[in-house]
Design a protein around this nucleic acid. Structure first.
Length: 506
RNA sequence: GCCCCUUUAGCUCAAUUGGCAGAGCAGCUGACUCUUAAUCAGCGGGUUGAUGGUUCGAGUCCAUCAGGGGGCACCA
């Protein structure tokens, strides 16, 4: 039926798909013209107000004989449009008969009030900018099915304004992260997404293959080792907003590809990074709504800096109830909790107990500092206590939002720690390999440095109070919905002829 | 990978102990130049996720499979 209307619109000499539509105003700006709308005269008549030209999607329609009320929405807001037959003329009135919910229209008219006092554009001209030949979702409930919202994001965005506003906020948050770093003289760089050795974090990588080089490549699990090479090269402050890929489970807090901001500051340390983290969050909050006391999961979190800072061992003592170095007490606590303690290293038990007792109890925002050195091999130890690493993590309601270190720049120690780490790995994880080129780079001397990583998706979740990471990633990974499961034919890539490089030079 | 829940019209949802698959919105036809999820009258709309089983009879019970959600595990 909607397709029939396409032809009728063409028959009226109009293009249902529209063309360039210059000088239209964002609906938000049009609404801001309200003070310029002249008051009604004694007879209750509305003199014409400011001229307006908008483009938007028809969300709602109310017909009343020879008048039609439309609610038009663009990405800045919504406004009512009045179309009266005598006001728009027969030609445009005929066009309006072919209009459906979901269509994109351009409207020229003047601003004024209706009898009921609603700010309205009184249309004089209607332009089709895009005919929707699929019906939009139900006008009141919209798309509520979560699967549909993730799978069919186009429809979700135009029918659920809170979804649109979340992604607009995400964009502003990322812009705030960029400008904060830029203002502190960090430069933005791009490092390889495809890496021969996927290093810089403990995670399983995705594997891919380069045909011409016949090379196994991995999608990066972190940009870290490349950013540090830049420190060696003399780029003293670098950052990357990096998409990283980890071949692991999916949950409300994990998507296989996600966005991480990593930055490195030469001649700094983890304390510099704590201050920087507060600056970044402060700028991001100002970019969203400026409210430092924010709702989160039905509770409230106060982001007003400075945030509290506690050492790992202080928190361990407080929540677990024994000294971190008390081997016997730790083992008995772990055993009481039901952990397997047989032959498990003391530090592993400590780490498990910490995760079990402490992390969930951290309302935050709180910096947890000074981790046991054995848990973080890429970190410089404290000069006063070599068993403690200069590292912090930022927690909010038990969720880890940021992770920072005083980076290890001793290539000899780094290499031996790498070897120890690799020696302890299961065969399954043997993809991890020694990155000799990275070690060689360090041998040219990397400045002492602070390094910081912030999980952008989680940061957005927390600032916008979204319970699932899928609410802040436009296109989260979902299983492809097979039309019929038989179409999932086995890939015989081995036998397939090499595709010709049709995109050479692109 | 394991456990629980879920899948009915384009969308949002009903359907009693197993007994003719329904409503609202959207759509179509008509009325109405100030409506606010407009209203009023009429009409059309379905492989109940898929396959098999039990039964005189399955949306409902059973099995398998698929998608999705939540939790656990893996993982920062």
């Amino acid at each position: 039926m909607r397709r029939v209307k396409l032809e009728r619109i063409s028959a009226l000499g109009r293009d249902p798909w529209g063309h360039r539509f210059d000088d239209h105003q964002p609906i938000h700006d049009v609404r801001a013209l309200e003070p310029h709308v002249p008051p009604k005269d004694e007879a209750g008549h509305q003199p014409p107000g400011p001229v307006a030209r908008i483009a938007g999607r028809v969300m709602l329609r109310r017909t009343a004989g020879k008048a039609i009320f439309l609610d038009l929405r663009d990405w800045t807001g919504k406004i009512q449009v009045f179309c009266g037959k005598s006001q728009v003329g027969d030609e445009h009135w005929a066009l309006l008969q072919e209009m459906d919910l979901g269509d994109l229209l351009g409207i020229d008219g003047t601003l004024g009030y209706t009898k009921t006092g609603e700010l309205t554009i009184f249309a004089t001209k209607i332009t089709f900018l895009g005919k929707s030949i699929l019906p939009p979702p139900e006008k009141w409930h919209g798309l509520t099915d979560v699967e549909q919202r993730y799978r069919n994001r186009s429809v979700d965005l135009f029918s659920n304004q809170e979804s649109m506003s979340a992604f607009l906020s995400r964009s502003r948050i990322i812009a705030a992260v960029r400008s904060t770093l830029g203002a502190k003289n960090f430069i933005e760089v791009e490092t390889p997404t495809m890496q021969a050795i996927a290093g810089g974090a403990a995670a399983r990588p995705f594997v891919t293959h380069h045909n011409t080089l016949d090379l196994e490549l991995y999608l990066r699990i972190a940009p870290e080792l490349y950013l540090k090479r830049l420190l060696v090269g003399g780029m003293e402050r670098v950052f990357e907003i990096a998409r990283v890929f980890r071949n692991e489970g999916i949950s409300t807090r994990h998507n296989p590809e996600f966005t991480m901001m990593e930055c490195y500051q030469a001649y700094g340390d983890y304390n510099s990074m704590m201050d920087l983290t507060e600056s970044i969050f402060t700028a991001a909050i100002k970019a969203v709504d400026g409210q430092f006391v924010r709702p989160l999961n039905g509770r409230s979190v106060d982001f007003t800096p400075p945030w509290s800072r506690w050492t790992y061992s202080e928190l361990f003592l407080e929540h677990v109830g024994c000294e971190i170095h008390d081997t016997v007490a730790v083992a008995s606590k772990a055993f009481a909790k039901g952990f397997d303690t047989e032959g498990v290293a003391h530090d592993v038990l400590v780490s498990n107990l910490f995760e079990e007792y402490v992390e969930d109890a951290l309302e935050g925002p709180v910096f947890v500092t000074d981790y046991p050195a054995s848990l973080c091999p890429l970190t410089k130890r404290k000069t006063t206590d070599p068993a403690v690493a200069e590292r912090f993590e930022l927690f909010v309601q038990g969720m880890e939002l940021a992770n920072a270190y005083t980076e290890l720049n001793d290539p000899i120690l780094q290499e031996s720690l790498f070897r120890n780490q690799l020696a302890g790995q299961k065969a399954e994880d043997s993809m991890a390999k020694m990155d000799h080129e990275f070690i060689d780079a360090l041998k040219h001397a990397m400045p002492p440095a602070g390094g910081l990583g912030i999980g952008i998706d989680r940061m957005v979740m927390v600032l916008l109070d979204k319970p699932s990471i899928r609410d802040v990633i436009l296109f989260p990974l979902l299983r492809p919905k097979g039309q019929d499961s038989a179409s999932a034919e086995p890939l015989e890539s081995e036998n397939r002829p090499e595709p010709k490089s049709e995109f050479e030079g692109m």
